[in-house]
Design a protein around this nucleic acid. Structure first.
Lengths: 227, 227
DNA sequence: TATTGTATGATTGGATCCAATCATACAATA
DNA sequence: TATTGTATGATTGGATCCAATCATACAATA
């Protein structure tokens, strides 16, 4: 498979588990923008010391989920229309580029993995799985599309962007409708990808991201002017 | 000024100082790719405990300067032609885009700041300042060009890329020649930028990055096939 | 001789504790 | 009454210490 080998079993440190926990709370909206994250509160909640909490917060800062100020602690980063544009424009540059490179290197095994990933998302929507699982499968599909590009550095950037993008997607008023549209677009993307139609795949991916961004930004603009 | 306000005085934590120290050692080539960074060794060297060293290493991992494996510590990430392509292609996507957005928002004050930044680089080259300072001024110019885009998220990505790009630039066989070329290109970039010629500035910036990337990649390819 | 098991020191991950900083309320002063 | 100074609890940053894991050398076994 033309993808990056990842370790088959990787031990989870307490730091990694805490990072996942806090990230899930932020992405899920339990901790909204501006929310102060107290190290001691998280530590007590999870039954660990403050050290892994602090180390987790440093990682989340790198992902743009929190902002840390010296001696003042971590605050969940604020969402805004401007930030969404910043974020989705970066995705609009990187993802179509990576998908073009990916198609150049893709193997049949990769394509099988992508199809499997697409079907898993489809099945999860049909079952009405919870938003967290649906998000995970959505990003897994995007990752599977881009992974054969063999660009681990750019992939790491894109992965970080997904975490923040997820926060915006979860804000959508009509998530079911958005997901149905996304799934249909995933099917079209996969068809073009399977044919190795580079230009068409890139075009569809650009539209896929731009449409979602457009929805989110206009919704945010409405709420921002209302406020 | 249409740029992001940064705090006038920000306290340095020990963690931040350690991160700067290790980053400088990696970028300067003292710690080459594959070098094991021992927490205790750095701690002893700087007269601090291992806690800030570990936290610094986490930040450097996010920047792609080190790779951390659970219970095995941090290793300086390896440089390669493939990685250089990955890195410089990402810059080639993001920077020209950001410079276009920047010109759209730029103020006279910004332009004055950019000119000052360009002249500082020029003067440092004329004085024969050490590579570390020359690098800092080079990136400061690039940052000044892009900053008026008001895209803090994309800017953070680009800043992280600069750290790794610097490792490659320091490898160049003829740094003086490369810097003279870069300076000349900076002048042309600045002229187009000042005229607010968006297309020409983007074109020049693309060429500026692509030329440097081309040099570095072909040099790496030569040494990789030689080995 | 090649492979597997075991012991030991080195190293990392995490808990606990102390010092420094921050936020807040309240007192003092003009 | 508005501003400045001071005291106190809350919180973070960092040092020290302990437990878990890893790497290595060496012994045991087929």
């Amino acid at each position: 498979m033309a993808t990056i080998d990842k370790p088959l079993l990787q031990r989870q440190t307490v730091t990694a588990m805490v990072a996942e926990y806090i990230a899930a709370r932020i992405i899920g909206g339990d901790y909204p923008g501006g929310h102060q994250i107290r190290q001691e509160a998280i530590a007590a909640e999870l039954g660990v010391s403050r050290i892994p909490v602090r180390e987790a917060l440093l990682q989340l800062e790198a992902d743009g989920l929190v902002v840390i100020r010296t001696h003042r602690g971590a605050v969940v980063s604020e969402l805004s229309a401007d930030d969404a544009i910043d974020l989705f424009d970066a995705r609009l540059l990187l993802e179509p580029f990576l998908v073009e490179k990916a198609i150049g290197h893709v193997t049949d095994q990769d394509i099988a993995a992508i199809e499997k990933s697409m079907r898993a998302y489809e099945a999860a929507i049909a079952r009405g799985d919870d938003p967290k699982d649906l998000s995970r499968l959505n990003w897994a599909f995007h990752t599977a599309l881009l992974e054969p590009s063999m660009r681990p550095r750019s992939m790491a950037v894109v992965q970080a962007l997904y975490n923040s993008a997820d926060r915006y997607l979860r804000l959508q008023i009509e998530p079911a409708k958005a997901r149905a549209k996304a799934l249909q677009e995933h099917r079209e993307l996969f068809e073009a990808y399977r044919r190795k139609d580079i230009a068409e795949t890139a075009r569809l991916l650009r539209k896929h991201i731009a449409d979602a961004a457009g929805e989110i930004v206009s919704q945010l603009r409405r709420s921002e002017t209302a406020a």
